[in-house]
C-alpha cells in the first residue's frame, strides 16, 4: 500500500472516530508539480489528500491560526522532519499543546515520499536527532561561505541589492510558523524601530531583525524563500544564524518540546572570542 493511500485511510479513520477534528495535508496545486494545503474535515474529503515528492511546504504554520486549538480538540497534520521540529519549538514556546497535534510524518527521498513511524511529536526524537547529525544544508553552507570570503563591502552590496527588491509584503512572515506574534515588531510605531516604507534602509532593518528573531528557531523549511515574490535568498541568512547557534552554543532548533530558547538561556562558559 502506497503512502498516499495509507495516510488517506488513516486520516479517514481519525476523522470518523472523532479523534481529530481536522486534517491538514496537501492537495493538487495549480500545476502538476505544485501542491497546496488542504483542510479536511470529513472522511469523504480525505480523497483530496495527495502525498508525493512535491509536498514540501511546512504545514505546521497553519496550527497557529488563532483559536484553532483552543477548543482542546486534536488536529492532524502532514509534516516532514522540519515541520516536526517546528511543532517542538511551538510547544516549547507555549504556542500549542503537542498532545493536540497528530502527526502524519513523512520524508522525501529521491523524489519519493516515505512514511516516518510515530504519531506524537515525542515519537520522532530519533528523526530529529538524525537530522541534527546529518548537519545543515551543504548547498546553503557553500553559498554562505562564498559570501564570507568576499569583502564586507562586497557583501553589503550583495545584500543591498537583494534587500532593495523587498516590497515589504511580509509574505515571509505570513508563511513562517515562528512568526506567531500578535503584534510584529515592524508594526510597533511607538517607537518605530523599523522603517516601514519599502526603501532599502527599512528593508535592511526588517530583514536583519527577522533573521535575528529566527536565530535558534528557524528549521530551514524554506517557506520564506519560496514565498518571497522578489526572490530574496532569505533561507541563506537564516541558515547563517542556524550555523552560528550550532557552532557557538551547540544549539539545534526544535530538538524537543521542552528545549529552552537559545537567547533566553546562557552558559557561563559560552565562547566570547570577540569581546575586548
Amino acid at each position: 500500500m502506497g503512502i498516499q493511500v495509507q495516510f488517506r485511510k488513516e486520516a479517514a479513520e481519525l476523522l470518523s472516530s472523532g479523534a481529530v477534528k481536522l486534517v491538514i495535508g496537501y492537495g493538487e496545486g495549480s500545476t502538476p508539480e505544485r501542491r497546496r494545503p488542504v483542510f479536511v474535515r470529513t472522511p469523504a474529503e480525505t480523497e483530496r489528500l495527495v502525498l508525493d515528492g512535491a509536498c514540501v511546504a511546512n504545514l505546521s504554520t497553519y496550527l497557529i491560526s488563532e483559536g484553532l486549538l483552543s477548543d482542546g480538540k486534536n488536529v492532524a497534520v502532514f509534516l516532514k522532519p522540519d515541520g516536526i521540529r517546528s511543532i517542538n519549538i511551538l510547544a516549547a514556546e507555549a504556542q500549542l499543546n503537542p498532545e493536540q497535534v497528530v502527526i502524519f510524518g513523512f520524508d522525501i527521498e529521491n523524489g519519493e515520499a516515505r512514511p516516518l513511524a510515530g504519531r506524537k511529536a515525542s515519537d520522532f526524537t530519533q528523526v530529529v536527532e538524525a537530522a541534527k547529525a546529518a548537519g545543515l544544508s551543504p548547498e546553503l553552507q557553500k553559498e554562505a561561505e562564498r559570501l564570507d570570503h568576499i569583502s564586507a563591502a562586497e557583501r553589503f552590496e550583495y545584500w543591498k541589492e537583494q534587500f532593495s527588491k523587498c516590497i515589504k509584503c511580509y509574505a515571509c512572515r505570513q508563511v513562517c510558523p515562528m512568526c506567531y506574534c500578535r503584534r510584529c515588531i515592524v508594526d510597533v510605531n511607538q517607537p518605530q524601530w523599523i522603517n516601514t516604507s519599502s526603501h532599502t534602509l527599512g528593508n535592511f532593518e526588517w530583514n536583519i531583525v527577522r533573521a535575528f528573531h529566527l536565530a535558534g528557531r528557524c528549521v530551514a523549511c524554506g517557506g520564506c524563500d519560496r514565498s518571497c515574490p522578489v526572490n530574496i535568498p532569505l533561507r541563506l541568512i537564516n541558515h547563517r544564524m542556524a550555523k552560528e547557534v550550532l557552532d557557538a552554543f551547540d544549539y539545534y532548533a526544535g530538538e524537543s518540546t521542552d528545549q529552552k530558547p537559545v537567547l533566553a538561556t546562557f552558559r557561563q562558559d559560552d565562547p566570547e572570542t570577540f569581546i575586548l
Partner: peptide, 12 residues
C-alpha cells in the same frame, strides 16, 4: 494586548 505568551522572558 500584545504579549504572545512564549515565556522567553520567564526563562531569561
Amino acid at each position: 494586548s500584545t504579549c504572545a505568551g512564549c515565556w522567553g522572558c520567564v526563562t531569561a
